[in-house]
């Protein structure tokens, strides 16, 4: 390999972080489109949205919020540990993050499967029998939490890569920008959930 791009550019951590922030910006806009749709229909079907939201399990939602917030904390701690050169602790915190993420997805799975077993899913007879506003509420619920779930999985894959990189000393105290960027991504996933949680579970 020549030194053309590898050595010169990849040391520029400011660039790497700037690129990541720009990417996160596009993610915010992606979900922004969804929030726009949500706002339009919430405004149009206020009563129905309230009724439908009562069916959601606020307990599981709260639990998942706590789990996701904790996972953001562990990612931040992992970065701090790496900054101080503690490879072992950094790895431990990343494994914790993975466990939290997995717990989140398991909860989500049970939540969704309960709904589906009650016949509440797009196109089902039970749902189609309900008024339009409730159909839309559940449609948005599945689409938005589903899209968020996909982001959680992408984040888990990214963190898995970082764990491998740390084991192989590709991410070190001197060069941990990949870990930092992954952490940024994970915080975004968390942040989106912080908006999804009240919109679906709390406003009633």
């Amino acid at each position: 390999m020549s030194n053309h791009s590898d050595t010169v550019h990849h040391k520029d951590n400011v660039s790497a972080k700037m690129g990541m922030w720009l990417f996160l910006f596009t993610e915010v806009l992606l979900f922004g489109g969804m929030f726009l749709v949500y706002a339009v229909y919430r405004y149009q079907y206020q009563d129905q949205f309230k009724l439908a939201a009562m069916e959601l399990n606020t307990g599981i939602g709260t639990l998942n919020t706590i789990i996701l917030l904790s996972s953001s904390l562990t990612v931040a701690l992992s970065i701090a540990a790496m900054q101080k050169g503690n490879k072992f602790l950094s790895l431990v915190f990343l494994y914790c993050t993975q466990i939290f993420a997995l717990m989140f997805m398991v909860n989500k799975f049970f939540e969704w499967s309960t709904k589906i077993s009650h016949g509440l899913f797009p196109g089902s007879k039970e749902l189609l029998a309900k008024p339009n506003g409730q159909i839309l509420f559940y449609g948005l619920y599945y689409v938005m939490t589903g899209l968020h779930g996909i982001h959680v999985i992408i984040g888990m894959i990214a963190i898995a890569f970082i764990i491998v990189f740390i084991h192989r000393d590709k991410v070190t105290q001197q060069d941990f920008i990949k870990l930092e960027n992954t952490g940024l991504y994970w915080h975004l996933v968390d942040l989106i959930w912080i908006f999804l949680f009240p919109l679906f579970y709390l406003i009633q």
Partner: peptide, 11 residues
């Protein structure tokens, strides 16, 4: 999936 977000029949 026929979620209905753009379908007037479903609101």
């Amino acid at each position: 999936f026929g979620v209905g977000i753009f379908d007037p029949a479903l609101g």
